[in-house]
Computed example of a mutant assay.
Amino acid sequence: MTKFKKELLRDDRNGKIAGVCAGIADYFGWELWLVRVVALASLLLGFGGFLPVLYIVGWIVLEKKSVAEARKGTSFVPSIEKPVEVKTRIWQRGEAPKQALGHIQQQFDSIEQRLRKIETYVTSSKYQLHREFNRL
C-alpha cells in the first residue's frame, strides 16, 4: 500500500462555517467535535483575538477539499474500497471496534453477493453463448 502525502485542506462538506476545524481534524486524524471544542474553549479562555484571525487566515489560504479532489480526480471511491478506521483512543477519528467489525462484515457480505452473481453468470448458458459470439 502506498502512502500519500497528506495536505491540510478545508473540509467544506463536514464544516459548519468554512471547514477549517474539519480540515484540521481530518489532517491530524482527530475527532471533529474535539477540534471544535478545543477551538471554542481557547476562544473563551483568552485567545479571543488570536483565534478568529487564524481561522480567517485558514479560510482564505487553505484550499477546499472538494476542489482539490476534483482537480486530482479522486472524489469517487467505491464503498468496498473505503478503509474502516478503528478508534484506539478517544480523540482519534474512527469507529469503536464492534462497529468496525460490523462494517467489515457488511463489506464482506456485499463482496460475497457480487461474487455469487458473477459465478452464476459464468456458469450459465448465457455466458457460453456470449463467448461463442465473441469468438466469431
Rank of each mutant, 00 (worst) to 15 (best):
N14H: 11
N14D: 13
N14C: 04
N14W: 01
G15H: 02
G15W: 02
K16M: 15
K16W: 10
I17Q: 14
I17P: 08
G19S: 02
G19Y: 00
G19L: 04
V20N: 02
V20A: 02
V20L: 05
V20I: 05
V20K: 02
C21W: 06
C21T: 13
C21P: 09
A22E: 05
G23S: 06
G23E: 09
G23Q: 06
G23A: 14
I24F: 10
A25L: 07
D26Y: 01
D26S: 04
D26C: 01
Y27H: 05
Y27L: 10
F28S: 09
G29T: 05
G29C: 09
G29M: 13
W30A: 12
E31P: 02
E31S: 05
L32P: 04
L32N: 10
L32Q: 11
W33I: 03
W33Q: 07
L34F: 06
L34P: 01
L34W: 04
L34Y: 14
L34G: 03
V35R: 00
V37C: 11
V37W: 10
V37A: 09
V37Q: 14
V38T: 11
A39W: 01
L40V: 09
L40N: 14
L40A: 12
L40Q: 15
S42F: 12
L43F: 11
L43M: 09
L44P: 00
L44Q: 11
L44F: 01
L44A: 03
